[in-house]
Design a protein around this nucleic acid. Structure first.
Length: 228
DNA sequence: AATCCGTCCAACCGCTATGCC
DNA sequence: CGGCATAGCGGTTGGACGGAT
């Protein structure tokens, strides 16, 4: 049955609804959102359930003010990626795409250009803090990634130090993760597939840009081929 | 005390990508 | 290959809240 055929509840979530959602995901796992309302006994649409889980109920979500280094990261990533909130949030452990988006929309530079009078300024207009907005490349999920389990495993949820035993903190874990991307035998396959990068590889290239911009020295053994 | 106004954030909406048949 | 259902994303909105008047 289609969702619209049911009168579903809208508006703010109650504590009881959050509890039901949490228990459901704990029992059945994350995913299959179309079944979540029924499984959880919630009179909510699957989109609402998913959003609530991702932005609020999910464990380890970091709330409160953004730290200086987080803001710095957001600004730099936004310059590279544009409004790719989910990718930006993926670089900020515990932060959600919605949080990042709200933060940018309200406190940083993302301001929509005025319609008629500013026509043509959209692609290089400036934000309210003088940040130059860029037309970012918008990578899309790539079929080849599906063949590479470790690529998928390294999605945001895997950005924890625990994924790399011996890594003392998230930063080290992230460096390890990125370097592993380039050590992978699959790298050659990626390069030869031709029509683009997978998201993870794109992220790695992006981080390379950031490291270079910051004056980091990265050994060739880490990044064994010339970058675009 | 009342009201206005700006800020912030949770949640909804609409669109696109993807997977499956 | 096309159509349909679902997942996921970014844009937008509505309301709560706090400060100013």
């Amino acid at each position: 049955m289609k969702e619209r055929a049911l009168i579903v509840r809208k508006g703010a979530w109650t504590k009881e609804e959050d509890d039901l959602l949490q228990k459901c995901v704990e029992q059945w796992g994350e995913g299959e959102w179309k079944r979540v309302p029924q499984r959880a006994g919630l009179n909510r649409c699957r989109k609402s359930c998913r959003l609530r889980w991702l932005n609020y109920v999910k464990p380890n979500i970091k709330r409160g003010v953004f730290q200086e280094d987080e803001v710095d990261m957001i600004v730099r990533l936004h310059k590279l990626l544009g409004n790719r909130w989910s990718m930006i949030a993926g670089r900020l452990p515990g932060r959600t795409a919605n949080d990042v988006k709200n933060y940018c929309n309200t406190r940083l530079m993302v301001k929509k250009p005025k319609l008629a009078s500013n026509e043509g300024e959209e692609e290089n207009g400036e934000g309210c803090r003088g940040e130059t907005r860029v037309k970012a490349i918008r990578p899309r999920p790539h079929n080849i990634s599906k063949k590479l389990g470790h690529f998928w495993r390294s999605q945001p949820a895997a950005n924890q130090a625990g994924d790399y035993p011996g890594a003392v903190d998230a930063e080290v874990a992230e460096e390890t993760r990125v370097s592993n991307l380039f050590m992978s035998p699959a790298r050659g396959t990626l390069r030869s597939e031709g029509d683009g990068f997978g998201n993870e590889l794109y992220e790695a290239v992006m981080l390379w840009d950031i490291w270079m911009a910051d004056g980091f020295e990265v050994e060739n053994t880490f990044f064994p081929f010339p970058f675009p």
